[in-house]
Design a protein around this nucleic acid. Sequence first.
DNA 1: CATCAAAAACTCC
DNA 2: GGAGTTTTTGATG
Length: 175
Amino acid sequence: MRNQLFQLPIATPDGQFVARYSEKGLAELNFPQAGTPRRGVRSKNSSGARRTPRRGVPTTVMRSHRKTVAALKNALAGRRAKSLPPLDLMGTEFQKRIWNALRKISAGKTKSYGEIAQAIGHPRAVRAVGGACGANPIPVLVPCHRILAAHGKIGGFGGGLDWKRKLLEREGIVV
DNA sequence: CATCAAAAACTCC
DNA sequence: GGAGTTTTTGATG
């Protein structure tokens, strides 16, 4: 079991996102509809899933939530957020490196999995990079959708390929 | 606890 | 279309 995460909804024109925060910051962000469609994730929906305690939420979490909402809306509008909320990324060092590299990508630009692999010093681990992107807990804010396959192909996307295309088109990126 | 085996949002021949 | 590379995850001894 991880630390207790506070789960809060985010209403956007595209639906209701679900964000989960630790006391350090944003830990996870999910698309509307599907709960956790990532592979290999067993999400027993028993009482283990902590719902939204509208109060009893630490002020740090509320602050992160406010920033997250602003950043998410900006991102959905096709613009990069001026400032992201504090992120509490949980994963292996390899994944953290990749996610950190993803955050460096400016809005309206794309990179390939190979580019990311080279950026983190494992030029052959392109496949693993794809896996790490799929394990990215915070899509949109960590722009995993700006990663395209080598030959300009769309690649894949955990939250659904339609989302990826939509996000890319909103940023003016044509595939 | 250490080891083996399979899968993955890729890339090159 | 097939083989190659790397990491993660679940099963096995």
